Simulated scan of single mutants.
Amino acid sequence: MLVPLCINVVLSVVGFGVVLRAIPVLSTMFIDAGLFGRDLCKADRTKKVPESMGMVSGSVFLGIMFLFLGVPFSEHFLTSSKPFPHAAFSEYLTSLLSICCMLFLGFADDVLNLKWRYKLVLPTLASMPLLMVYYINQGSTTVVVPRLLRAWIGGTLNIGETAIKAL
């Protein structure tokens, strides 16, 4: 149990170092690609500030998580005495898929200047794979309803029960 934690700490420190070195290098590339803004709170408003830099840290995070993928399940890869935990593995992969979708949507929002109506719908669509895997694995699919809709829907909504009633 201590070995996966140590590997996670080492990979996190490596990822931190990669992000610290990549941001200054990639910021000029983002500015050259036209992904920049102006800092309106500074006296010098002519200086270009790179935008969409969350892509850098998000991509490094996904890379670190892909490298870490085999560590929690290594005992099942090395010995076949225990059955493989397919449910936990699918939840791990689906969570990475949802993070990847949100990272892509954040970048698309920076590049395309999406309207608010899309910003409300797209995160829900990105979380659907994770909710469906939780439902299939008999996990919780309860979602907290936004305050604006609580008067009509209630405080929480169990998507699994709602989907079954709809079918």
Rank of each mutant, 00 (worst) to 15 (best):
A88H: 05
A163H: 02
E51I: 15
A33L: 13
T156A: 13
T141H: 04
G160D: 02
L97Q: 01
L97S: 06
L35S: 02
F61L: 08
T162N: 07
I153W: 06
A151H: 09
A151P: 04
K82I: 03
L67D: 06
V144D: 11
R21I: 08
A108D: 00
L103Q: 06
A163W: 14
I153L: 08
N113V: 15
N158K: 12
M55G: 08
V3M: 11
E161Q: 14
L120I: 14
S90W: 13
I31N: 06
G160P: 01
V133Y: 04
L69Q: 06
P83A: 10
D110M: 02
S74G: 07
L35I: 11
C6W: 11
F104A: 09
L96R: 03
S140N: 13
F68R: 02
G160E: 02
V71D: 01
I31T: 11
C41V: 12
A22L: 15
T141K: 05
L69C: 13
V9S: 09
C100A: 13
A88Q: 08
D44T: 07
Q138I: 04
S95M: 12
M128I: 08
T79C: 11
L40S: 11
A43S: 10
F36E: 00
L103T: 08
L112T: 08
S74V: 15
G106A: 06
G154V: 11
I153G: 03
R147S: 15
T124Q: 13
L93R: 05
L97P: 01
Q138R: 10
N137I: 06
G63W: 03
N137E: 10
I159P: 01
P24I: 01
F73N: 04
R117K: 14
D109N: 03
S98I: 04
F84Q: 02
L96M: 15
C41Q: 10
S12E: 06
